[in-house]
Design a protein around this nucleic acid. Structure first.
Lengths: 252, 252
DNA sequence: TCTTAAAATTGGTCAGACCAATTTTGATCT
DNA sequence: AGATCAAAATTGGTCTGACCAATTTTAAGA
């Protein structure tokens, strides 16, 4: 009765299951520690695997099995003949997030709904916290959109950058990461099915541009509620457009 | 000028960087496919590593390097002498999410702020979508809290379950996962520094219980705005308490 | 039928070897 | 001295075979 699910139990269960120490896991922990503490910065090169063997006092198998997860998740990058490197900051920890949500990314509705929540809040906080450099960065992306109204790919690039810069302006790193992951997923999911007639594309682009400008004005004016409302409107429009396109495509 | 960050570029760049196929990565992909498609269900046992070698036509090294990331991320579970198994569903994909956010977990404020956003929205949606079984599950956790006002550990367990069940009631799997990860982090972070005098603990517990009941009532009444407001109040109180405790401890 | 000890199986680790890509070195030429 | 380019050394990726430790299976014995 009222069976308490596993996760909840795990978070409060005082007795942690004893895992016999696997050598490679211990190494993983050390490396993660070094990276997240900043001792290893993005772009840094790790000692060669054969070096690490002697440093850790273990065989190469163990070293490699420790590196492998970090590489697979994009935290490290292995270059044959050159060495293992700490991945660029931007890409770091992006893949694990994607993997973490992989299971649920099939649910289109959840994705859209979550994005709506994240982005409206981002607009709100960005309005309250954006610094001068954030504002110019955002404005630049709007300029980019205005300059490429008839080049969908370019336009979309600046569109993405716009939301990217807003997320950055929140100064909230977690929110920043979450938005990028969710957006990335939606983007790929859109890209697969979105090919428009040039005329229609430009019409949508103009609408989108105007909405982006509204959002920017509100952020510039440090109007949190206004920015949230403008973003809300923008996303609802965009979502609706996508929905309509999906239908139109179906009836083709 | 106006340098576009890496992520934004990556999401829209049509030409994907060619990665020379690494054998192990190909295997990872196949296994992930099998799991997320349901061909391999939680608890299932994989063929032995030596079996997989011949099936894939590769050496054991490659097989193991493919399994390792999945094991490290908690998607698979390796039992020495027994075999490799697909991990229980609950724990699945939890670790990668934690890793994904690990980098930012130093920023306490971000964590608190993000939790506030996630949970208030969760309350809102839960109010609109909670089914009968969700309501009883939530009510059970409140009962549990009421029954253990003087046992902090127990109380905290039901407290966590309360938020857990609300997250579940949103029917939004992504939101559900995000909340659990963030909460888990905050929980461990709290646990380290939270030891109260029994009297003070019970006082806090009573306040907390009352607030939980308010939230529940709003959800039960399908009052989205009310639930959001109640949750907002609750989290602000809890955050403030934590803050005060931190100060008190410092001045000790 | 139940116990129990031996044997087989399986994941974890080590060692050595080879390949392919890259970097470094050094000889050669200008 | 500086530039060029081929050989050598370095490094990650993979394979093979071996051994250990934990577990499961088997089979012998009571």
């Amino acid at each position: 009765m009222s069976q308490i699910p596993d996760i909840a139990a795990a978070t409060t269960e005082p007795y942690q299951q004893i895992k016999r120490a696997r050598v490679s896991d211990a190494i993983v922990e050390q490396l993660l520690q070094l990276i997240s503490s900043g001792a290893l910065k993005p772009g840094d090169r790790l000692p060669s695997e054969r070096d690490l063997c002697s440093r850790f006092g273990v065989g190469r198998t163990s070293v490699r099995e420790a590196l492998k997860p970090l590489i697979t998740m994009g935290i490290l990058e292995g270059r044959r003949g050159s060495g293992n490197f700490v991945a660029a900051e931007a890409g770091q920890f992006q893949k694990p997030l994607e993997w973490g949500l992989l299971q649920d990314l099939h649910g289109r509705d959840d994705l859209v709904e979550t994005r709506h929540m994240l982005e409206t809040n981002a607009a709100h906080w960005a309005a309250l916290r954006a610094g001068a450099e954030n504002l110019t960065a955002i404005e630049d992306t709007i300029q980019g959109m205005a300059d490429h109204l008839q080049q969908p790919a370019r336009f979309q690039h600046y569109d993405a950058s716009f939301h990217f810069e807003i997320a950055r302006a929140t100064q909230n790193k977690i929110l920043f990461r979450l938005i990028n992951v969710i957006r990335g997923q939606i983007q790929t999911w859109i890209g697969e099915r979105l090919t428009l007639s040039p005329a229609r594309a430009e019409a949508l682009a103009r609408t989108s541009l105007a909405q982006h400008q509204d959002i920017f004005e509100a952020i510039k004016a440090a109007d949190g509620a206004g920015a949230r409302a403008a973003m809300d409107h923008h996303i609802q429009t965009a979502t609706q457009d996508l929905h309509d396109l999906g239908k139109a495509r179906k009836s083709d």
